[in-house]
């Protein structure tokens, strides 16, 4: 059974000092695909940036719920923090990094729950 069949789900306290767990897990997921080392490093930075946004201002009582999956040529990572409220403004440097290092990223707020979706594709694969 691969991660293409079964997404990895990870819930961690919504604390900045635990973002490294998200980074390590994302890098492990990327290893399922023929990413270059630079692509994997790019994904580490990208997931750090999006996760930092959705946990901003949260305390240890909130959780970051991550779902990571491999689908074809891409890794998709979704994050959710329940009840965190409005999203903070994305820092311009973070926006620059995400624009260049991720293939796509979105943020959303629904019923006070913050979420993101991030995708990173293997370079050079069409479709």
């Amino acid at each position: 059974m691969s991660t293409e069949d079964t997404p990895v789900q990870l819930t961690i306290p919504a604390l900045p000092r635990l973002l490294r767990i998200a980074r390590v897990t994302a890098a492990s997921m990327a290893a399922e695909l023929p990413f270059t080392l630079q692509d994997i490093e790019d994904l580490r930075v990208a997931v750090d940036e999006v996760a930092a946004v959705v946990i901003d201002g949260c305390d240890g009582g909130s959780s970051l719920e991550l779902t990571m999956s491999v689908d074809g040529d891409r890794v998709t990572i979704r994050g959710l923090v329940r009840g965190a409220g409005e999203l903070p403004e994305l820092h311009p440097v973070a926006r620059d990094l995400l624009d260049l290092l991720a293939d796509s990223y979105t943020f959303d707020v629904a019923d006070g729950d913050r979420s993101f979706t991030l995708t990173k594709r293997v370079q050079g694969v069409e479709g």
């Binding site: 490294r20 980074r23 580490r44 930075v45 750090d48 940036e49 930092a52 820092h91 440097v93 973070a94 990094l97």
Partner: peptide
């Protein structure tokens, strides 16, 4: 070994 936007700031 790792630097993000917070570090750049």
């Amino acid at each position: 070994a790792f630097l993000d936007s917070a570090g750049i700031s």
